[in-house]
């Protein structure tokens, strides 16, 4: 499982717009770079990032080879109810990683 760092406020007022930030360790190998032996290194990237709030999808993003290594994603959501925000990264070579935070809405 890849290392993940998530930054989200633990509490929010109802209706407040909050920022969620996530960082994941991944080489994001483009598939266009030659290795030490001169042959192309096979592509190995994260292709999709999704976020769900209490199992309802709130954010989805497709990633391309142009995204740098260890991608950092920041997005906004409106806090409507307390619950768990689950972040999920999937990609080449059956890559899959998950992280979650709980947000208490008052």
């Amino acid at each position: 499982m890849a290392n993940v760092l998530i930054n989200a406020p633990g509490t929010a007022r109802k209706g407040e717009t909050i920022e969620l930030k996530a960082l994941i360790q991944h080489p994001m190998e483009t598939g266009f770079r030659p290795g030490a032996d001169g042959r192309l290194l096979p592509r190995n990237i994260i292709t999709q990032f999704t976020a769900t709030w209490n199992d309802i999808e709130i954010f989805r993003m497709k990633m391309s080879p142009a995204v740098a290594a260890n991608p950092y994603v920041s997005f906004f959501a409106v806090a409507s109810e307390s619950g768990t925000v689950r972040l999920r990264w999937t990609g080449d070579r059956d890559f899959s990683a998950e992280g979650s935070v709980t947000v208490t809405v008052t």
Partner: peptide, 14 residues
């Protein structure tokens, strides 16, 4: 300065 934005902290975790 932000430990959740500093990519070096991923390596620190490891």
């Amino acid at each position: 300065d932000d430990d959740t934005a500093n990519p070096a902290m991923l390596y620190v975790q490891a």
